[in-house]
Design a protein around this nucleic acid. Sequence first.
RNA 1: GACCCCAUCGUCUAGCGGUUAGGACAUCACCCUUUCAAGGUGGAAACACGGGUUCGAUUCCCGUUGGGGUCGCCA
Length: 463
Amino acid sequence: MVRTRFAPSPTGMLHLGAARTALFNWLYARHHGGEFVLRIEDTDRERSTREAVEAILEGMRWLGLESDQDPFFQSHAMLRHQEVAWELYHKGMAYKCYATPEEVEAMREKARAEGKPPRYNGLWREKEPGAAQENQPFVLRFKSPQTGETVIQDLVQGEVKMQNELLDDLVLLRSDGTPTYMLSVVVDDHDMEITHILRGDDHLTNTFRQYHLYQAMGWEIPQVAHIPLIHGQDGGKLSKRHGAVGVGAYREMGILPEAMANYLLRLGWGHGDEEVIPQDRAIELFDTDGLGKSPSRFDLTKLMHLNGIYLREAHDTELAGYVKELLEKQGVALDKGQQALLERAMPGLKVRAKDLNELADSALVYFKSPIELLDEKAEKFLTPENLEMLEKFANVAQAQEAWDHEVLEQAARDFAEAEDLKLGKVAQPLRAKLTGRTISPSVFEVMELLGKEESLKRLRAVL
RNA sequence: GACCCCAUCGUCUAGCGGUUAGGACAUCACCCUUUCAAGGUGGAAACACGGGUUCGAUUCCCGUUGGGGUCGCCA
């Protein structure tokens, strides 16, 4: 059975790249009817924080990427990792290295100077510790093969080769006895029976070193797929200087999780001409053959476009729920009647918004008075002549028996004709007076939803 | 610096030896229109370069250039 994992280290926000990796792993498992698990790689206790774990879980929940098991914390498996390290040692596949960090650094410098890859030179590989090493600190290093080449079959990159002499003897246990990342991932992926690893291609070179660890333990090697990283607009690795990199920030920008997931899916993965791919369709289509080999740039504009699409297709009840919350945050509480109004107003509002914040703001015309909302552009429409004209129109409106947008629009058309005005010359001042803004859904729709009483009240109010 | 990876419109991508090189975002024009959106129609826009292989290369191979990644007792 297919089993994938997402293994973030909890040192900050849920990065967009990480979110995409999580999404791919989740989709791969779902597509193949397998399982998806979350492993928190918190072995660096200096940098790992409780808040970061929360942010990751929160982000995953938001994106709808539920895992099939409770999150596994790597730090809890430390004993197991050490056990494997010592097993390797007893099998003669690892050795104690007494070189100090300074000595190792010197080796690197020397190699660098010789134009070779900076690496540990294997000083203690065959050397037996003498009396001088008694009670001295040491690290446990893995005996990496020094000759031949390693070939891995990557689901995305294809066949990738590496000369083994380029690999140095990686540290398995630090001088304080704690396991390193390189050891822990391998042990955990094996113990958790992970069959497929989809991760950023910054891990590609690690794969060669991990390969030999699997071999040394006689373990089966999982399939790997290294996906190119997400870059910023300038082509560099996506980082803070490109703007928001945490999914939480996009949530706050009013992005719908469905849109975020769809956008992330299409960054580095494609299926013909399909652009709008909701979750169930994504599960149906996703596989590694659709993954691209070249890095892609993050484009906020396209994300926003997709958000608009999902916004328009979203259920009015759902959107009204989001908006209600956002309005409450700004201190605008809605009673039951207003909530119903909000939902009815949604079709007219959602086609005009590109994110939830805009949507919430546009809904204000129904809940705040024109005086409160009045902006400069709208004010310009409220000239003495226009106000006079609107007074006349108020009488026309009041005379209407039925109160719906069609009737009102026809009344406005007739009125405009009688006054020898274009409809726009009536509608725009009307909008300004009614909403305090120059942008809103159809004024006639606004009037219908506001109701006759409220509409006339606003129309006749002295600003 | 060494090693590894990548290279189609500005961006995301389709293409898997023979296509008028397709779609989407953005952009421009027009239409619709009470504003703003949405929508409709149309336009401009790409195979990085140089060698091969082949009857024929965007597609296969090599090199150049450009970009990215990795070289920790971080993960």
